[in-house]
Nucleic acid binder design. Sequence first.
DNA 1: CTGAAAGCGCTTACAG
DNA 2: CTGAAAGCGCTTACAG
Lengths: 334, 334
Amino acid sequence: MAVTMNDVAKAAGVSLKTVSNVLNDYEFIRPATKQRVEDAIAELGYEANLTARSLRSGKTRMLGLVLSDLSSPYYAELASRLMKAASRRGYRVLVEQSDAVADVELNALQGPFRQLTDGLLFTPLMIDADTIAARLGKKPLVLLGEHILDPRFDLVTMKNGEAAAALTAHLLASGRHRIAVIGAHPEESAGSAGLRLNGYREALDRAGVPFDPALIAPCEWRRDNGAAAVAGLLERGVDFDAVFGLNDVLALGALHELLIRGVRVPQDVAVAGFDDIDEARFASPSLTTISPGMEEIAERSIGLLIDRVEGVEAGSQGLHVEAGFQLKIRESAP
Amino acid sequence: MAVTMNDVAKAAGVSLKTVSNVLNDYEFIRPATKQRVEDAIAELGYEANLTARSLRSGKTRMLGLVLSDLSSPYYAELASRLMKAASRRGYRVLVEQSDAVADVELNALQGPFRQLTDGLLFTPLMIDADTIAARLGKKPLVLLGEHILDPRFDLVTMKNGEAAAALTAHLLASGRHRIAVIGAHPEESAGSAGLRLNGYREALDRAGVPFDPALIAPCEWRRDNGAAAVAGLLERGVDFDAVFGLNDVLALGALHELLIRGVRVPQDVAVAGFDDIDEARFASPSLTTISPGMEEIAERSIGLLIDRVEGVEAGSQGLHVEAGFQLKIRESAP
DNA sequence: CTGAAAGCGCTTACAG
DNA sequence: CTGAAAGCGCTTACAG
């Protein structure tokens, strides 16, 4: 069997409690005692049993991350950064993919996944604020990326609406007035899609450009859907001079479809996205998009969640953090 | 406090052991007893404490996945599939990013990360077979993606060499004879880079085309490095009519750099990659590449690891699985 | 088929 | 500053 604290205690000639004190950096230990314990630990190659520690302390030092799909570039980059930020503070991140299925989201909120983690970073796609509130246990929860603006919850998000409005204003200023939007989610109450679409409409309003529902293409946020949506617009003969993909992979799918059909970008149609994934810079033409401050989102959300877990952040009111954004003007929509 | 097995036992009027039997699907329980226990569980809303179970059983039902960086598209897609495959068999996957740092790889092999997981899926980048063998505990380990062909270890991999040779043969057959290679890793003993480069050389040999070291650009596998490497070749005046990026992001970075410099793809220079990430199909021009059978790799590696964990797969010899590959001929190198 | 008991390896009041 | 004891919530031989 593995070496236990008991073995260490025996080897060092002290009690269990003293070993525990050394391991947990208790202040008042005689240096000589501490040394003896540390020597014994080194000699025996002792490593604390994390499961036993968790059972006793009720903490796992793991944080849960619930998102729809890790293989989408935006979430992959975000997850990578979150894990690194957590690691710096001594926590691990356990990921759960919901595939945007309501049941999975519900289970992550109260099932075994919750039990395994000290706190949750949650991207709700299918369930609403009241549903979350009803299942909320005592463990901290920080909402991520979406915009359930509810005083009951901590939330770290991006400026979806403002940023979409800024991007739309840029397209309008460059002379485009028939801006197709790809990736709307008419079914979704509280989601990035809705907020970004709102931003788009506001920018149109401010510019006095009429909103045309024919320009709005609903679809899930997948690359092939971006391509298909543009194909649909072209085949229906919809007149448009710009495409706003509600995220980058949609825009990149659309870009590809336009190019293979001989539509010139940006001469005939400008294309813009949202997320500024790594790929956007290296597309041909490179993609105009919104950089939503992912590094800031990762740092702030992990920081806030761990503060809650450790009881540093006291307020019972939900804290709302909005990361800044940047408009990245590139070749696809100069 | 939470509801415990004891509470359930009391409510159902049975002993702890009987509750445990019901939870663990023990065969010989009187249906009436079982029903009473199940009713009590439902009524009290009992959920098993996973930490306590782990402490007692020594199993966590978590699998470890060690890779360099989750934000790279190939690993993100792989991790997503591995998690889904594991989930189907009742396991979770805990990811550790090594950033290709030897120390992190070592720690994943024996530190707390190992303790938290029942088995490991490991992509060794910086450490070799003997180092792994020296730290190998009793818990199962399956090597992934790389080619440490060592009878001591289970290994699930792709046909790096064969596939690279097939791709190179295709480029040669299309009339390209000056094929630049981007992303070589001269420092690395056992890695995909080396194996793919070998495949390239073999294909040249078979075709009687001389190998020219000037065509080989070493760099880490990042998109911007692919762009920089092509820029370097052009600026040094190296003559080439094709680029083989040792993975897709390198090839896509190269593709972008060629296009912005006015080099036509594929007319002037053909471009090919390796991985067939989602993006390859949607690049402009779409990218010729190798599809390395990722679904097969994910299923087989998770299956093998869980079999080992559960003692199904008996042999002490390492099992070696090679997934099949497909050459995807697209516009960038027809 | 079911019960009583031990114990997985820690942490945490409680004494001293 | 340190020790002896209890207990976190399960599973697992061992009886019967």
